[in-house]
C-alpha cells in the first residue's frame, strides 16, 4: 500500500545536471511543460478565428483574458496594465497546473512548496522593487499606517513590517497547502476503498461509500483548483497595487 503522500514524489524522467546541480527532467517538469503548452496553445488556437462575433472556444479564451484583466484593473487600475502579461501567465500557469493535477496519474506541480514559494517570493521581491523604483525611500512610509497616533507608531510599524515580510509565505503556503490537503484526502479515501474491497465480505459493498465520497471531493477539488488560482492572482494584484499606490 502506497502512502497518501507518495503521489508527490519527484521521479526523474531524464537525468540532467548543470554546475553540479541535479536539474533532471522530472514528472513535475513534464507537467509544468504541459501546463504552459496547454494554456498558451489553447488560447492561441481558440483565438485563431479572431472574429468579431466569437465562437464557443474564442468566447472562453476571451473570458479568461477579461477575467484576469478585470482583476488587474479593479485592484490596480490603469498603472497595472504593463504587468498584465505577467499576471495572466501566472494565473494560467497555476490554473492549468491545478486542473491538470486533478487528472488521475498526473502530477500536481503546485503541490510543491518550492514551486509556489519561488513564485510567491519572486512576486514579493518584484513588488518591493517596483515600489522602491516608483517611490524611492518614500516607499517605506507604506509601513506607517495613516492616521496612527504617535506613541503607537513603533508598534504598528513593527506589525506592518512583519505582515509585509510574511506575504510570500502566506501566499505560497495557501496554494501549496490547499493542493497538498486536497490530493492527500483524495488518496486517503481511495486507499480506504481499496482496503475495504480487499477485506472481503460486507466490506466490499461498503467500499462504495468512499468511492462516492471521492466523486464529491473531486468536485470540491475542482472548485479549490479554480479558486486558488483566482486567489493567488488577486493577491498578486493587491500587492502590486500596494507597491504602485502605497496606501
Amino acid at each position: 500500500m502506497h502512502s497518501p503522500v507518495e503521489q508527490f514524489t519527484i521521479k526523474a524522467l531524464y537525468a540532467l545536471s548543470l554546475f553540479g546541480y541535479d536539474i533532471s527532467f522530472t514528472n513535475s517538469s513534464l507537467f509544468m511543460v504541459f501546463a504552459v503548452l496547454l494554456s498558451s496553445g489553447f488560447l492561441f488556437f481558440a483565438m485563431r478565428p479572431a472574429s468579431i462575433i466569437p465562437g464557443r472556444l474564442q468566447c472562453l479564451a476571451e473570458m479568461m483574458y477579461e477575467f484576469v484583466a478585470n482583476i488587474l484593473d479593479s485592484n490596480v487600475g490603469k498603472e497595472g496594465k504593463p504587468y498584465f502579461p505577467f499576471v495572466f501567465t501566472l494565473f494560467l500557469f497555476i490554473l492549468f497546473s491545478n486542473l491538470l493535477g486533478l487528472i488521475p496519474y498526473s502530477y500536481t506541480v503546485t503541490s510543491q512548496i518550492i514551486v509556489t514559494f519561488a513564485m510567491a517570493f519572486t512576486i514579493f521581491i518584484g513588488v518591493t522593487l517596483i515600489g522602491l523604483f516608483k517611490h524611492g525611500l518614500h516607499f517605506f512610509s507604506f509601513f506607517v499606517p495613516p492616521g496612527a497616533s504617535k506613541p503607537l507608531i513603533p508598534l504598528l510599524v513593527l506589525i506592518e513590517v512583519i505582515s509585509y515580510l510574511i506575504r510570500p509565505v502566506s501566499l505560497s503556503v495557501r496554494l501549496f497547502a490547499n493542493m497538498l490537503a486536497g490530493h492527500t484526502m483524495l488518496k486517503v479515501f481511495a486507499g480506504l476503498a481499496v482496503m475495504m474491497s480487499g477485506a472481503g465480505g460486507i466490506m466490499v459493498a461498503g467500499s462504495a461509500f468512499p468511492l462516492i465520497a471521492i466523486i464529491g471531493l473531486t468536485g470540491l477539488e475542482l472548485l479549490v483548483a479554480l479558486l486558488q488560482a483566482y486567489v493567488f492572482t488577486i493577491l498578486t494584484c493587491m500587492y502590486l497595487n500596494d507597491a504602485l499606490h502605497l496606501h
Partner: peptide, 13 residues
C-alpha cells in the same frame, strides 16, 4: 529535488 524544480519552473514560466 529543488534545483530541478526551480530550473524547470523558470524555463517553463
Amino acid at each position: 529535488t529543488w534545483p530541478s524544480q526551480l530550473f524547470w519552473l523558470v524555463v517553463t514560466f
